[in-house]
Design a protein around this nucleic acid. Structure first.
Lengths: 218, 218
DNA sequence: CCTCAAATTTGAACGTGTTCAAGAAAAGTA
DNA sequence: TACTTTTCTTGAACACGTTCAAATTTGAGG
């Protein structure tokens, strides 16, 4: 029964994500999704345990889109600066269609108890996939990143990516160009500033951030 | 009729905040608040337009508590580092009773459309009061902060305070000691790093953050 | 083809935040 | 005091996310 079942699942996810884009998160009620998909409310819940789970689905699809775009863009970027810039910009590209829904998305995702929280166990798959993009960006860079940082850098950059996302949600400039400018301006500073991590105090702070980020995942 | 009216308002706010502390945000339903206060649901809504507005009330009270504690602690702190540290620690002290409720609080507050959003117009009073604490911390510091930064520094530090709050929400270490350590570690770095703002690139990034933060307030 | 257990689907029901027409109480006016 | 206006209070009602017992459909084994 996997075929029909998977069809229904895809139908619900497809309808929901389209409605998220077109009419926003609040107006996309579970009843509206069910009606649009031609099924009952309870049936939608058979496939997605909560409305948050549909956000999780969105998170997965956006992340897959990001991975595809990043892989393409990283082909002709060798130094860390341009690789990082390409990674962040393609990430913004992938999120773009959902910008109007960003506030609700982040409100859902930031709650520590939410399955959608990018630090939580329920998001392990999506987070690891997202982290892999940064691992690739850092790992294949020439010249290579400083040895001392190499293992933690992808994770730190991923945290920066989360911060950029937060900035992006609040950015109402046309096409979120302000976030683009922030990325363009901040990336060279970050890559040039990597040497700062050698300062003992800075390193300790970074360690704190990393271990907190890890401990949240429980 | 201002007296009785104000009494009722205080009653609702008091009951709500106590219930937030004692049983958490989700279990503190509007019906439960009304029942506990001995009034009708609609009457609670006469004084607070939404449950979020009660969170706003909490924000105001926490901020007042912060102001009081900071004023006391800043009495015997002269250099910027210790003044900043005192300001951040007293902020954490004021929030402490509500830590278990932090996730819900931040999920409410981070939504750009929420009246509780610390960047939004509805929070102007609370935000300005909070900013004033940082203005005092910076303004009376000896030796004084670099001229170039003096006008923007309180706002930047307030943004750091928001970031620390975010960290604190996710911090489940005993008594949130990890956040305390973060503050102790990060503050000297920040004060020592102030000279970095002279680097043109860094200055531009900071400007971007500030103007975004300002533009959100509409 | 028939049987039956598992997978899928239904729709009514619950508790939630919120709204609102209606009424009660207080304050203002004479 | 008697009337009017404003402020305050009520409780039923709405749409929402979510749950669940029951009904239906499906596929495997005979």
């Amino acid at each position: 029964m996997t075929v029909k079942s998977e069809q229904t699942r895809q139908l619900v996810a497809g309808v929901a994500l389209r409605m998220f884009r077109e009419i926003g998160f609040a107006k996309t009620t579970m009843r509206a999704i069910a009606a649009e998909a031609g099924i009952s409310v309870g049936n939608a819940y058979y496939y997605f345990a909560s409305k948050d789970d549909l956000v999780q689905e969105l998170y997965l699809q956006v992340q897959a889109e990001h991975a595809a775009r990043a892989a393409e863009a990283l082909k002709d970027a060798t130094d860390l600066t341009s690789r990082l810039r390409a990674t962040l910009h393609t990430g913004l590209d992938a999120m773009a269609p959902y910008h109007r829904f960003g506030g609700d998305f982040i409100a859902t995702a930031i709650r520590p108890t939410s399955p959608v929280n990018p630090f939580a166990a329920g998001s392990t798959a999506a987070r690891e996939a997202s982290l892999d993009i940064f691992r690739t960006a850092v790992g294949a860079a020439k010249p290579p990143a400083p040895k001392k940082l190499r293992s933690d850098l992808p994770e730190l950059l991923w945290l920066c990516y989360m911060a950029v996302t937060l900035f992006w949600v609040y950015d109402n400039s046309e096409g979120q160009q302000r976030t683009r400018r922030l990325v363009d301006g901040a990336v060279p500073l970050v890559t040039r500033g990597l040497s700062l991590a050698r300062i003992p105090g800075v390193g300790k702070i970074l360690d704190d951030f990393l271990s907190l980020s890890r401990s949240i995942r429980g």
